[in-house]
């Protein structure tokens, strides 16, 4: 097998383009569930009107290359690097951060990153990005960029559950997380859920679950069934857009699972607002 060469400069340029695309072009799968949600609202209701505003907002953002939401997020970058890929040039991490910086600095994207959680000085570049690396088979390099606002990020939660807990317990924990978020984090929500792994990987799985198509389902039937049950329970909360009690409380639930330890069952919920933003490219 020959090695494919990809330069750090290709990566920098791609990350920059993906940051701009993710912030200005709403994912087609997200737009689709939003439209479906709007159609399900009571005709002429405030909720329906507000749902239509979101759809109009997405069209305006794309047409005018404006951010869908002013909170253009803290950027998570996910790289799947094929074993047969050779990355040329120094500093992969620098290349990724440079790409983010070029997208955000001196442009229309808001810089929302502070250098220190206590001192809180804005870095002015929206870097550093949160970088996740994975090694996969093949000669491709896939990059996902997910700028996530903190209105919804603040409402996520993780629970290290007992291995003997029931599926009902898991459904309840996920539902309670959304109940606590209430109307604060821009419902209708999209839920990314991590099951298994360790505390840290579980949280990461929850975030990665948000990269999956919102309208899709897990390949394993028992996990897909949990996605469906969680969606049903969360819908029953009746929060609705802006908390107005309309029909749309959740637009999708996706789960990513992983092997774990005999003594535990970590469960993490990464809550997303309706404006779930990400973009992907394969090099």
């Amino acid at each position: 097998m020959t090695t494919r060469r990809i330069t750090n400069d290709d990566i920098r340029r791609t990350v920059k383009e993906l940051c701009i695309k993710a912030n200005t072009v709403l994912r087609p799968d997200v737009l689709e569930v939003l439209k479906k949600g709007a159609d399900e609202e009571e005709k002429g209701s405030v909720s329906e009107k507000m749902m239509r505003i979101l759809i109009e907002n997405a069209a305006m953002a794309e047409k005018e290359t404006m951010p869908i939401c002013q909170d253009t997020g803290l950027v998570s970058v996910f790289l799947e690097i094929g074993e047969d890929v050779s990355i040329e040039g120094k500093g992969l991490k620098d290349a990724i951060n440079k790409g983010v910086e070029e997208a955000y600095k001196d442009t229309f994207l808001r810089k929302s990153v502070v250098a220190d959680p206590i001192l809180r000085d804005n870095t002015g570049t929206n870097t550093p990005a949160i970088i996740n690396l994975d090694i996969v088979k093949g000669d491709k390099l896939t990059i996902w960029v997910m700028p996530k606002g903190f209105g919804s990020e603040n409402k996520g939660s993780i629970c290290m559950m007992n291995p003997t807990c029931t599926e009902e317990d898991i459904v309840k924990f996920c539902t309670d997380t959304v109940k606590k978020a209430g109307s604060d984090a821009c419902p209708p929500y999209i839920l990314g859920i991590g099951l298994g792994g360790t505390m840290d990987t579980c949280a990461s799985l929850a975030k990665k679950a948000l990269l999956e198509p919102v309208g899709g389902k897990n390949k394993k039937p028992h996990i897909a069934d949990m996605e469906r049950r969680i969606r049903e329970e969360v819908s029953n909360l009746g929060i609705g857009i802006m908390g107005l009690g309309g029909k749309s409380t959740v637009l999708g639930v996706r789960i990513k699972e992983s092997p774990t330890h005999i003594a535990g069952l970590p469960v993490a919920v990464n809550l997303s607002c309706h404006a779930l933003r990400s973009a992907c490219a394969e090099l």
């Binding site: 505003i53 907002n57 404006m66 939401c69 109307s183 604060d184 802006m242 908390g243 404006a275």
Partner: peptide, 29 residues
């Protein structure tokens, strides 16, 4: 956007003020 604490609700009543909500995630609009 979103709900307010009970203290805020009381204060709004006391000072005869008002709290409005507007759709989040519709910044371009």
């Amino acid at each position: 956007k979103g709900s307010r604490s009970e203290e805020v609700r009381e204060a709004i009543k006391r000072y005869k003020a008002v709290y409005f909500i507007t759709p989040g995630g519709a910044g371009a609009y």
